[in-house]
């Protein structure tokens, strides 16, 4: 196991290097520039700004400079926010995305797995159909529709919760609910199908034959294998939640990484886009590593040689 972790972490370096390189040139190929404005700046101002940020140098020199700074842990300056560095921006906004993402996913995990288990145990019952219909509902309603609907019901009609903004626990509920809906649905469906596969497996039959109680069979034995698709799904899903969620952060005016990213992309804030992409990549690799470890623990049949 330790060998696996070390190998994967070492394997991360070339992967990240490829990602950085591809992203660096990809975003430079995109039309536009960091100092484009509705009212165009005077030509000499744009030149001065380019010089200030080292964007006047040939691209390969810029790339080299970027990598050099990166090696020192410096993600570069923001061209949109004068005087801000990318490091500062990630540090400022990560806690928000982390809080929102973890709460939303935790909620989705608990609810989704429960629904999935119940559905699988009562396969083809009306309870099963109802749960799956609700799950489907969660999938077919995109967050940009669900968010406003929840706001209309809970904020503007019932006056229970604030319609937007951030800072107090009450601000967390609607965005977390909006975010988790689709994940509840995904997880419920994946759990159900995973459980259905496992519940028919021989070792479960054996366990039942041994006279173990149903709850022990389900929760101790079946769930271990049945939840594997959910665990696989969690890697990328959680990464994207933690990296910030553009739509929900926009609707609820939440100062998370998603809004930073979209704003940076729209204004070609090159270093911010690079920094966030790198951050997400590292997160993804780590998440997938964790996923593989968890799957290995859950299912002893899988070997990593």
């Amino acid at each position: 196991m330790l060998k696996l972790i070390i190998r994967r972490l070492l394997g991360m370096i070339p992967v990240l290097f490829i990602i950085i390189t591809l992203t660096f040139f990809l975003i430079r190929l995109a039309p536009g520039n960091p100092f484009a404005n509705d009212k165009a700046f005077p030509e000499e101002v744009i030149q001065a700004l380019n010089k200030q940020y080292g964007l006047d140098k040939p691209l390969h020199i810029q790339y080299f400079n970027y990598i050099t700074e990166l090696a020192k842990g410096n993600l570069g300056p923001s061209t949109r926010y004068a005087g801000k560095t990318v490091n500062e921006m990630i540090a400022e906004h990560l806690p928000t995305s982390l809080a929102l993402g973890l709460i939303a996913y935790g909620f989705a995990l608990i609810l989704g797995v429960s629904i999935g288990i119940i559905s699988s145990l009562r396969q083809n019952s009306s309870l099963d159909y109802l749960s799956m219909a609700i799950a489907m509902f969660g999938i077919s309603i995109p967050s940009f529709v669900l968010g406003p609907l929840l706001v209309i019901v809970f904020s503007l009609t019932l006056f229970w919760l604030p319609p937007a903004r951030w800072g107090e626990p009450k601000h967390l509920i609607l965005p977390a609910l909006t975010l988790s809906a689709i994940y509840i649905a995904y997880i419920a469906r994946l759990t159900r199908s995973g459980m259905l596969e496992v519940l028919r497996a021989d070792y479960i039959r054996t366990a039942r034959a041994k006279g173990l109680t149903e709850s022990v069979v389900v929760l101790r034995h079946a769930l271990r294998g049945g939840i594997i698709p959910v665990v696989s799904f969690t890697g990328p899903a959680l990464t994207f939640l933690l990296a910030g969620t553009i739509v929900v952060e926009k609707i609820f005016v939440i100062p998370g990484l998603g809004r930073i990213f979209i704003e940076a992309a729209n204004s070609r804030d090159y270093f911010v886009v690079m920094g966030l992409t790198l951050f997400v990549s590292i997160l993804l690799v780590i998440m997938n590593l964790l996923v593989d470890i968890v799957i290995g623990l859950l299912d002893p049949r899988i070997s990593y040689k």
Partner: peptide, 17 residues
């Protein structure tokens, strides 16, 4: 992982350009 990590938005913008 690599394809996953590339900023999709820019991929589209560049292809369109």
């Amino acid at each position: 992982d690599i394809i996953y990590s590339l900023p999709y938005l820019f991929l589209v913008i560049v292809l369109l350009a």
